[in-house]
């Protein structure tokens, strides 16, 4: 079964150090990304979703450190421990962009406004492939055409400000897909876009997954997106994966109180006013003053004394795992 795993993360801990204080942004996270499958990571702002992505890409800021755990990339030429590679060393630069690519949330800040779209797509092709300049240009145009951008021959020489939001995001995807990566990490790729444009981007990502057998890790806060795209889901809260499993496990029979509360708090289209949406009481705690035990306990309706110690991860079925001391009481 190991053969279809593209990347595995084990007990990863990433801490940030500022003003003599330590923010345990990721506090022991484990998951696998499989080839041709989509893993969705959901959670509210500040739960560590994006930090997980930048840890894998080795794009962390200087004041942070991978404290413990491992990130193993299962390449065809053998396993590579990404966490042990030198920061910005030759090896990680070879992998980054070519084998593991990333789509960022905000295409306006992720694209450089003073270079043309074409130049920015060609850049990674120049670095990672042996193609001639002419072939590279042709490839960039083909990529834009695949992404459904009209008149790619003309558009390739335009600057980011001449593109609309949806087109910029598609150009970002073209850039990420230029070297046919094995793993695609998409950090909220559609949050800034309208639903109609979002639908176009999702169609595109599904096509890429089917054609190139790419493993996708999609970071989102929208449960609707999860239902739509995911094969597997991991729900994060305050730096921990509190519940993970197949999309059926998590959405049909959520066991963790946080997942249930999250699903109860969103209005579902087509159910009108009769549906009762329940807000989660309180707000996410200060990351510097985390609760001692389960970090969701102060907001949880089912919290008991046992929640004062950090619960262990527990498998309730082969694919479905959960971090909650008394999940049995919840269902």
């Amino acid at each position: 079964m190991t053969s279809d795993i593209a990347l595995s993360v084990k007990d990863l801990k990433t801490y940030f150090y500022t003003n003599n204080r330590c923010n345990k942004a990721i506090n022991g996270v484990s998951f696998d990304i499989r080839r041709g499958k989509t893993l969705c990571i959901v959670g509210e702002s500040g739960c560590g979703k994006s930090v997980t992505a930048s840890t894998i890409m080795q794009l962390l800021p200087t004041l942070s450190r991978i404290e413990a755990g491992s990130i193993t990339y299962h390449a065809e030429r053998g396993d590579i421990r990404i966490d042990q590679l030198a920061r910005n060393g030759a090896e990680i630069r070879k992998i980054r962009g070519a084998e593991i690519a990333m789509i960022f949330q905000d295409p306006m800040t992720a694209l450089n406004p003073v270079y043309t779209i074409g130049f920015q797509i060609e850049e990674s092709l120049k670095y990672h492939t042996d193609l001639s300049l002419k072939e590279i240009k042709k490839k960039a145009i083909d990529l834009l055409r695949d992404m459904g951008i009209p008149m790619p021959e003309k558009r390739v020489d335009e600057y980011p400000h001449q593109f609309s939001g949806g087109m910029r995001q598609r150009a970002m995807i073209a850039m990420a897909m230029s070297c046919n990566p094995k793993i695609l990490i998409a950090d909220e790729p559609t949050t800034a876009l309208d639903v109609t444009i979002q639908a176009q981007i999702f169609k595109l990502m599904d096509k890429l997954k089917a054609e190139h057998d790419t493993a996708i890790m999609l970071i989102t806060h929208d449960m609707g997106v999860v239902a739509e795209l995911a094969d597997e889901v991991a729900v994060m809260y305050m730096g921990n994966i509190v519940e993970a499993g197949s999309v059926d496990d998590v959405l049909r029979s959520p066991k963790h109180p946080y997942t249930r509360a999250l699903l109860d708090s969103i209005p579902v289209l087509g159910q009108g006013k009769k549906q009762a949406i329940k807000a989660i009481k309180g707000a996410t705690p200060d990351p510097y003053e985390r609760p001692n035990g389960c970090s969701f306990a102060p907001r949880c309706d089912f919290a008991t004394k046992e929640c004062d110690v950090m619960p262990d991860e527990e498998y309730i079925s082969k694919s479905h795992r959960i971090m909650c001391a008394n999940y049995k009481a919840v269902s």
Partner: peptide, 24 residues
């Protein structure tokens, strides 16, 4: 119609027949 069909719904039983609008 297109706008409504484009919204992802957090409900696995409702596989939508999505109308994907072209262009901006």
């Amino acid at each position: 119609e297109a706008l409504l069909s484009a919204i992802p719904v957090a409900d696995l039983d409702r596989k939508s027949n999505r109308i994907v609008l072209e262009g901006d």
